[in-house]
Amino acid sequence: MDEFRKTDISPDEIKSVLEVLDPDGERPRNVITTSGLNLRFGDQQILSGVNMDFPRGTITALIGPTGSGKSTFLRTLNRMNDKVRGFRHEGDVALEGRSIWSSDQDLLDLRRRVGMLFQRPNPFPMSIKDNVVAGAKAHGIAKGKQLDVVAETRLREVGLWDAVKDRLNDSPYRLSGGQQQLLCLARALAVGPEVLLLDEPTSALDPLSTESVERLLRELTPALTLIVVTHNLGQARRVSDNTMFFYEGKLVEHGATNDLFNQPRETNTARYVNGLMG
C-alpha cells in the first residue's frame, strides 16, 4: 500500500490516462440533443423552442406544474407520441448526433437504447422472471439458459433478487407497488439501454420504496443517462445533476440543479422551486 502512496503521479496525469481509457471517450459527450423542438397536438401548441443537451452519464430532472409539457417532452424522446392523434413536431431530437426521426434510425432499436419507466408500475401478465426477460427475448439478446442469467443479473442490479428468487414463477402482481416498479426497472435494464426516461417513477410509491428507487437511480449513473420527470422537488434536488423547469409550454430555465434551486434566474422558477406556485 505504501508504494502506491509514494507515487508521484499527479492527479492531472491520472485524469488524462483515464480519459484515454474511457470507452465512451470517442462518443459524443451529449447523448441526446434537442434543437428548436416544437410539439403540438392538433392546433394546440404543447411546447415550443426547446434547445437542450443531455450529457452522458448524468441525471436530468424535468420539473414544472401539471400541463407544462414536461411529460410530452419526455415521451417524444423515444417517439411514444408519434402514434398519438394529431401529434406534430418541428425541430429535431438527435440521439448521438442522429435524428430519432431519420429514416435510417430503426424505431425498435431507438426504444431499446432509450428505455422508459412509467408512473404506475406496469408489469406484464406473466411470471416475474418472464417479465424481466420480456424485452431481452423480443430483441433476441438472450435465449434459453441465458435468460436465467439475464433475469438474475438484472434482479440483483435493482436489489430485488433476494425478495423474489424463490418465486420467479409467481405473478408479479403479488409484489408490492415498489417491488413492481423495481421489476419494471429490471425489465427496462435487461435490453441494455443507454438512456432511461422516467415519468414520475415514484409518484405511486411509499417513501421507503421511493428512497430505494432513488438510490438505485444514482447507482445507474454514469453507465446510463437518466431523464426524470418529477413533481417531487425534493427528489429533483436529491438525485439530479441538472434540472429543467417547464412552465406553460416553454422551457423557462435549465442548469445545474444546485444553481437552479438556489439562484434561479427567472421569477417563475423562483416561485415554483419555493413552493409559491403548484
Binding site: 411514444m80 426504444r111 431499446r112 412509467f118 406484464f124 423480443a138 419494471c184
Partner: peptide, 26 residues
C-alpha cells in the same frame, strides 16, 4: 390495459410481438 401496450412499445417490441406475447394473453 393501455399500460401493457405502452410497456411493450417502450421496450421496443414490434406491434405483432406485443400482440402475441402480451396483449392476446391478457
Amino acid at each position: 390495459p393501455t399500460a401493457y401496450r405502452e410497456g411493450a412499445e417502450a421496450l421496443g417490441m414490434t406491434a405483432g410481438y406485443s400482440l402475441r406475447k402480451v396483449v392476446l394473453k391478457s
